[in-house]
Amino acid sequence: MLRHPDGSSFRFDPGALCLELLPTGGPGPLAYLEALYEPADLVRWAEESRLPDGLGPGGGPGSGPGSALVVSAGEVADARVLRDALWRLVEGRAEGAPPGPDDLVTLNDAAAHPPLVARLTAGGDREWAPGGTGAGLLSTVARDAVELFTGAFAHRIRACGADGCRLLFVDTSRPGRRRWCSMERCGNRHKVRAHRARLTAADE
């Protein structure tokens, strides 16, 4: 569920882990969406993200309840820098623009750190190895972005088709005709506007 500052919430699946980070804020006019202020905010985002099976048992300063992820204040600042670079890179890709060199450096530097490590338990389950850090989380996100930009769906990175909505997603559907961030929000609003326009045209 994506929570908007106006109090509304709706289901939004951007299709990739790296794209899930974008709605936590952004550069310029997107700063009003800022949701990453302290370590617990980044831990909470990770726990609610598409990372499978949560982040396992853990705790300690800068961690969430039951989380194996420990984040420092500096890593929260790094998360905001990476997120803002991703905004520009993803919007540029959606518009067919070349990536900015500084944003590429930010992405590749984040990806160069060791990522979060998954492991197999004796019971046959998957869990995150303890000792996960904010840098490891950001590396995992950055590597996901590299895979997205170079993968089979890179040409399907799109912005929502609604006026005034800047949400970005990758269309992984088989037909490849996704237009909206969410049918529940922008898709439904478009249908309502189109219906009203048809009624107005019929009355003229």
Rank of each mutant, 00 (worst) to 15 (best):
2 L>P: 03
3 R>S: 14
7 G>W: 10
8 S>T: 14
9 S>Q: 15
10 F>P: 07
10 F>H: 15
12 F>G: 01
16 A>W: 09
18 C>N: 01
18 C>W: 01
18 C>S: 08
19 L>E: 00
21 L>S: 00
24 T>L: 15
25 G>M: 10
27 P>N: 13
30 L>Q: 10
31 A>F: 07
38 E>S: 08
38 E>F: 03
41 D>T: 01
42 L>C: 04
50 R>I: 11
58 G>P: 02
59 G>T: 05
60 G>I: 14
61 P>H: 13
71 V>C: 00
71 V>H: 07
72 S>C: 12
74 G>I: 04
78 D>R: 14
79 A>S: 07
81 V>K: 15
81 V>M: 09
82 L>C: 00
83 R>V: 15
85 A>E: 01
86 L>A: 03
91 E>G: 09
93 R>A: 10
97 A>H: 07
98 P>F: 01
101 P>T: 11
102 D>R: 15
111 A>K: 03
112 A>K: 06
122 A>R: 15
126 R>E: 01
127 E>Q: 12
133 T>F: 02
135 A>R: 00
138 L>I: 06
140 T>G: 04
141 V>L: 03
142 A>D: 10
148 L>M: 11
153 F>S: 08
158 R>A: 11
158 R>V: 05
159 A>T: 05
168 L>H: 06
168 L>M: 15
169 F>N: 02
172 T>Q: 02
172 T>E: 13
181 C>W: 04
190 H>L: 15
192 V>Q: 09
195 H>F: 13
195 H>R: 05
196 R>P: 09
201 A>Y: 12
202 A>P: 08
